[in-house]
């Protein structure tokens, strides 16, 4: 398996910027996750609503848990979604991905896959062109294997 070729192709295929910055191997806490999204919102506490996070109720541990996010927005020049941040509060690093949009995007929807180490909350925060911020939150339960693996 050639990692370089794979990485290139993966990046070419999705219009997503993956951010896995190395913040050390300690598990992120709810506080770290909150810190990460408050940095994104400029300190404003996002309101619940307009953002819909779609994720499996029970997931495997591993690096391929599919999640989708969509934001209810007219996506016009004056009123559109600028970016969506996804954070997970139980992974070594809470940042999962940031998606950027413009009015030309048409709809504000994106799909990605994430790594899940244990049962945790996944939070999607959307920042609108007028600066308002919204969120959705889902607890994804990570399954437990049978034979003590």
């Amino acid at each position: 398996m050639t990692l370089t070729r794979r990485d290139t192709l993966l990046l070419g295929a999705c219009a997503t910027a993956f951010v896995f910055s190395g913040r050390g191997m300690a598990f992120a806490s709810a506080e770290l996750a909150e810190e990460a999204y408050l940095e994104f919102t400029g300190g404003a506490e996002p309101e619940l609503g307009r953002v819909t996070l779609d994720a499996p109720e029970i997931a495997e541990n591993g690096n391929t848990v599919p999640i989708s996010v969509s934001v209810d927005s007219p996506m016009t020049a004056d009123d559109h979604v600028e970016s969506v941040l996804i954070v997970a509060d139980g992974n070594p690093n809470p940042d999962v991905a940031t998606f950027h949009f413009t009015a030309l995007s048409g709809t504000a929807a994106a799909t990605t896959r994430m790594r899940l180490a244990k049962t945790q909350n996944v939070i999607a925060v959307a920042r609108m062109s007028d600066g308002s911020v919204f969120m959705d939150k889902k607890e994804i339960k990570v399954t437990i294997g049978g034979c003590g693996g």
């Binding site: 398996m1 794979r6 192709l9 993966l10 295929a13 896959r113």
Partner: peptide, 9 residues
């Protein structure tokens, strides 16, 4: 290939 890394093998 975006779902299954084994494809690259």
């Amino acid at each position: 290939p975006l779902v299954n890394p084994a494809i690259w093998t």
